[in-house]
Nucleic acid binder design. Structure first.
Length: 1092
RNA sequence: GGACACAUAGCUCAGUUGGCUAGAGCGCUACAUUGACAUUGUAGAGGUCAGAGGUUCGAGUCCUCUUGUGUCCACCA
């Protein structure tokens, strides 16, 4: 005898050798010997899953255009959050797929035009990193060794490989995605959309190029987003330095060279009188001047309560400087080295400079004292671990606070807050609304440029031509300069818009001279490097006083003040004739381009007059300039820029959005219904999608945000490669079947909460798929439907169901009411209720509860009770009821476990796909109410049967022994005697192995086991087989419990407050409950006393 | 430092607006085996709902505090 086996199967001791062999074989070989057919009792997912998926694909029904729907059918859209192509899918993705597929399949069956759009995300920086690391590991090279072109080729190879792997995995999970609409965030269509978006945003003044302090990695030579920065705890020195009238503390003395202010808390009395005053501070490079400012962010408790302000190299300082109009002085460059303006320290790294400066300061007596062991967090690059230098850098930004006409004069931020606050977008779970709003309200301008190679290119082109040259040409042509007709709408001729921005003071003066009296410009904008301000409409007079005294221009009547790198005046021309004029005028520079690219939306010729004094012109265009001399901006876009457009870029935007009107897919499927994703990217992604969609199509991207939790391992740890605890969904799906994996991810998982995952759990759901398989197998082999029954409707297949049509249904209901047995009525009621609960649970995103209730019904009510009864009871209605319930059950299970249900559907003789079946309606079962007699009676019957079974097991009565059971109904409700008499057969047959005798005399039966339920007394004569002590103990315990219970209720009912304030219904319930308990107690006591 | 969660059976978790003796799955215990299913069936044991206080006729559920755990955000001049 196999020892191992007997551990697993203790009963094997009684099994014959043949059976042992079979079990052995089955467990080892994964049941290879079994066929696909229903012939065997083990469901083998491997045999059916791939085949079924192919059938679904072939049917075309993943594409809603192929669904047979009325024209006015509502749409239900989900865009799949595109997985990063950095790696294959993990189990977390499987949660996403399971939830979304559930929603899509449910709504498809409900008759919606269900669309689920697939795709993948290029994940710019993350992907580049992965490939860089791989390159380094495999070839010991950096991306610079390869060069941009070769490196990108490698990235694409990698991307395509992962993409196809992801695709395969997704299909394995059974996802009913419309592959005909598959998208990639970096494919041609999305490139087009991204470019258009950039140009549009630039046009609207939302995108601007600006100098702002950024996280800069001196090694990787790129900016890092806030979330790409990691903090490491470090023990360092804390220098207390003498700083003019102050003594203040710093961990970075080298930044002193860039100081321009000292900040104190406005409430700090020590420094009150100094605020606003200027001081000369002695330093290692001689004296320098600072101004004292007050800012509430300064903690008076920390250090000396005074902070040196280095706007160019500290985020907090930068903000303070912005608020208080403090100049910025950069002293550290992009290599992390001291700049030329730091005298003898120039060229040193920051840490070298720190040492040198501290040494010099010590010599000069500027160091007060030094704290060692100062623990603080250092910002490091998440990739290479290099310390991050905050430095000012020229980057592209999205202005989230800029008021926009198209958003009703609200900013992107305001609008994105508004749509959530007013409930247009709802979060599940709700608590994330607050996270979202908090984050959104604190959002700064979004830096969208990244110094990496893999990603969307920025549609900005530069050319080194002097703007004065262009102006010369422009001047020549000014006689012909003609603006479109007066009052013509500015945006009507979108393709023909040209903008020439003139910059620097000289240009400006020229402009004023030449155009002040003329009326041949449309309007003049004043651009301060960030915001574009309309200075003057045509014909309005205006004055602009460009000041030689640097960087400040006061703009005429509106009295606005601007602070800029240069001063810009923008002339916009929107006329058709303008095109011709440009073509004629710019012969030297641009004509080819204009001829071939008429969709160009803007020509900006501006001089940014940056420090390097390069004199370049810039072009923002939605098409590539193919002529010489123009060089595209080398940066690429933040990956969230393209994924933020996901809901509409996948639906044909911009082609499907013209003049503010949606068409095609965009009109039919946008806004989408649900965005389902992990809560970890709530802020990163969700917020951006909302802003992008509001800007581009002026509507929300989705109505609901459902956030699932993260999947952790059985110990609650995050899954990561380094821990080796990553579960590959494909592997477990191979092992246990996709359906089991999906169930284990859906059931026991609640939104926003993390889910602990284990194979054990998957195994238990694998068992369930097998259960439903066998239920169906029983149905197929034992239920014979007679097609010739006249009163029943027949369908094309051999499934016969309770008719959905109202009049036919009435006949059927009538018939049921007359002929159906108690159990029939009970199960019909149960399934009807189940349908309505499961539907509403799914619609309210309570997937776990829906699944649990289905599970409970399937296994307990249906399999364990009704199916067992159906083996005993035979009546005309039985088969049709079984058929109806099983088919509705399969329909309801389908969104949860599509494969096994579809496989069964086919096995039981359907030609059509279950996938496109109608979701069941509870109405066809809607003729038995919860409080009606059959339901109560059946439940009573169950109680009696369970009591008998319990009595047998508790008293160790041999299973094979047939016992006598005496049921006394004297104290029970009216009708129970009849019930028990009618159902005698069932009571005797359902694993009770007994012969029932019914009496009504209330006399106790001596020498018997006793059970009581609902006033019914059940006696089993013992014939000396019972352990008297044990039975007595049991009674005592039950009495104890009951007495406690009764005392509880009695005290409640004695409470005047309860009687006065509780609803009558509750009071009555309590009273009834008390009566029941009391009578039960009486019976048990009576019996206990009889045990001797 | 701020915010948000979570704490319920040995384990993993449900418990919707406060209202019958707090539920499920796994595990555990006992018993059962050849025709739907041992990936099974029948029955059972197991919980001071983290702690303290409050609101209420009534609290696992609402409020406050405490303890512990986790996540996110900010940041340490």
């Amino acid at each position: 005898m196999n020892k191992e086996l007997s551990k697993i199967y203790p009963h094997t001791k009684k099994m014959n050798n043949n059976k042992i062999k079979n079990i052995n074989k089955a467990s080892k070989s994964g049941n290879k010997r079994l066929s696909t057919a229903f012939g065997v009792g083990v469901y083998d997912p491997k045999k059916v899953e791939d085949k079924i998926y192919k059938e679904w694909e072939k049917s075309g029904f993943f594409n809603p255009d192929n669904l047979d729907l009325p024209k006015d059918a509502k749409s239900y859209t989900i865009t799949l959050p595109p997985p990063n192509i950095t790696d294959k899918l993990h189990i977390g993705h499987a949660v996403m797929l399971a939830v979304e597929d559930l929603l899509i399949r449910y709504h498809r069956m409900k008759g919606y035009r269900a669309l689920w759009v697939p795709g993948t995300d290029h994940a710019a920086i993350a992907t580049q990193n992965v490939v860089e690391k791989k390159l380094h590991k495999e070839e010991g090279k950096t991306r610079h060794d390869l060069g941009k072109e070769k490196f990108l080729k490698k990235v694409w190879e990698y991307a395509l490989e992962k993409q196809s792997e992801i695709l395969e995995q997704t299909k394995k999970m059974g996802a009913s995605l419309d592959w005909s609409r598959e998208a990639f965030t970096l494919d041609d269509e999305r490139k087009k959309a991204v470019t258009k978006m950039f140009v549009d945003m630039y046009e609207a003044g939302v995108i601007y190029q600006g100098k702002r302090i950024v996280n800069w990695c001196p090694r990787c030579h790129t900016t890092l987003a806030d979330d790409e920065v990691e903090y490491e705890e470090e023990k360092g020195k804390f220098y207390w330095i003498k700083y003019g009238p102050f003594v203040l503390a710093t961990a970075r003395p080298e930044t002193k060279l860039g100081d321009t202010a000292v900040a104190v808390n406005p409430k700090d009395k020590r420094y009150k009188d100094m605020v606003g005053k200027k001081y000369k501070i002695p330093g290692v490079l001689g004296e320098f001047e600072i101004i004292v400012i007050a800012d509430r962010h300064v903690d008076p408790e920390f250090g000396s309560g005074a902070v040196k302000v280095t706007p160019a190299h500290d985020f907090a300082d930068y903000e303070m400087a912005q608020k208080n109009n403090i100049p910025m002085k950069q002293v550290i460059n992009e290599d992390g080295k001291m700049m030329e303006n730091t005298g003898k320290y120039a060229g040193m790294t920051t840490s070298e400079a720190r040492k040198a400066i501290v040494a010099d300061m010590e010599k000069m007596g500027l160091i007060d004292h030094i704290d060692d062991d100062y623990v603080h967090n250092v910002a490091v690059c998440y990739r290479c671990g290099t310390v991050i230098e905050p430095i000012p850098s020229k980057q592209w930004f999205i202005a989230v606070d800029k008021k926009l006409k198209r958003l009703g004069n609200k900013s992107l931020k305001e609008k994105a807050v508004e749509v959530v606050k007013n409930g247009n977008i709802k979060f599940t779970p709700e608590r994330f609304t607050k996270s979202y709003l908090d984050w959104m309200n604190n959002m700064h301008d979004w830096c969208i440029s990244r110094q990496i190679w893999f990603g969307h290119e920025i549609p900005v082109y530069f050319k080194n031509i002097s703007s004065l040259d262009l102006l010369e040409k422009y001047k020549k042509g000014k006689k012909e300069f003609k603006v479109g007709e007066k009052g013509s709408p500015v945006h009507a001729k979108k393709e023909k818009e040209y903008r020439v921005s003139l910059s620097n003071e000289e240009d400006f003066e020229w402009f004023i001279k030449n155009f002040k009296e003329k009326e041949d410009y449309e309007y003049v904008d004043y651009f301060d490097g960030k915001n574009r301000t309309r200075v003057s409409e045509k014909n309005n007079s205006f004055t602009i006083i460009p000041k030689k005294s640097k960087k400040k221009g006061v703009v005429g009547k509106k009295g606005k003040k601007g602070e800029i790198d240069g001063i810009y005046a923008t002339i916009e021309e929107r006329s058709t004739s303008g095109l011709a004029r440009y073509e004629a005028e710019f012969k030297g520079g641009l004509p080819e381009y204009f001829k071939n690219h008429k969709q160009i939306s803007s020509v900006d010729i501006l001089d940014y007059q940056n420090e390097e004094k390069t004199d370049s012109s810039m072009l923002v265009s939605s098409s590539d300039p193919i002529f010489d001399g123009w060089k595209q901006d080398e940066d690429s876009l933040d990956t969230w820029f393209s994924s933020g457009m996901w809901t509409f870029s996948t639906l044909g935007w911009p082609d499907t959005f013209k003049n503010g009107k949606k068409s095609g897919d965009l009109a039919r499927f946008h806004p989408t219904q649900v965005l389902e994703t992990g809560y970890d990217i709530l802020t990163l992604w969700v917020s951006r999608m909302i802003m992008m969609s509001l800007f581009a199509v002026n509507e929300i991207p989705f109505k609901n945000v459902y956030l699932h939790g993260l999947v952790r391992d059985e110990k609650g740890r995050k899954m990561s490669k380094s821990l080796g605890n990553v579960i590959d969904p494909r592997e477990v799906a191979e092992k246990y079947g996709t359906d089991a994996v999906r169930l284990s991810l859906l059931i026991g998982n609640t939104p926003g909460n993390d889910l602990k995952m284990s194979e054990e759990k998957i195994r238990s759901f694998r068992n369930f798929t097998n259960k439903i398989w066998n239920i169906s197998r029983y149905y197929k082999t034992n239920v014979h439907l007679d097609h010739k029954q006249p009163t029943r409707p027949t369908s094309e297949n051999n499934i016969i169901e309770i008719p959905p049509g109202e009049s036919e249904r009435a006949i059927w209901h009538n018939k049921i009411s007359k002929n159906a047995t108690l159990s029939d009525k009970w199960i019909l009621f149960k399934i009807g209720k189940l349908i309505s609960i499961v539907s509403s649970d799914i619609e309210n995103f309570h997937f776990s509860q829906a699944g649990e209730k289905l599970h409970d019904f399937t296994w307990n009510d249906f399999a364990d009770w009704y199916l067992e009864i159906s083996k005993i009871e035979k009546n005309e209605e039985k088969n049709i009821i079984l058929s109806s319930i099983l088919t509705d059950l399969l329909r309801m299970w389908h969104p949860f476990m599509p494969f096994v249900t579809e496989a069964i559907w086919k096995e039981i003789g359907n030609n059509k796909l279950l996938m496109i079946e109608k979701w069941p309606s509870q109405e066809k079962y809607n003729f038995i109410s919860e409080k009606s007699r059959p339901i109560i009676s059946f439940e009573l019957l169950q109680k009696i049967i369970i009591a008998i079974r319990n009595a047998r097991v508790e008293n160790k009565i041999d299973t094979k022994k047939k016992i006598k059971v005496i049921i006394d109904t004297r104290n029970s409700a009216s009708g129970v005697t009849e019930l028990v008499t009618e159902q005698k057969n069932l009571i005797e047959s359902l694993r009770t192995k007994c012969e029932v005798e019914i009496k009504n005399d209330g006399k106790k039966v001596p020498n018997s086991i006793h059970r009581t339920t609902s006033g019914i007394n059940i006696y089993i004569p013992t014939e000396g087989l019972v352990d008297v002590e044990k039975e007595k103990k049991r009674s005592e315990k039950e009495i104890e419990n009951l007495e406690k219970h009764i005392a509880g209720i009695e005290s409640k009912l004695k409470n005047k407050g309860f009687l006065a304030k509780a609803p009558e219904e509750i009071v009555n319930q309590q009273k009834e409950s008390l009566e029941r308990a009391k009578s039960k107690l009486k019976e048990i006591k009576r019996h206990r006393d009889s045990i001797s």
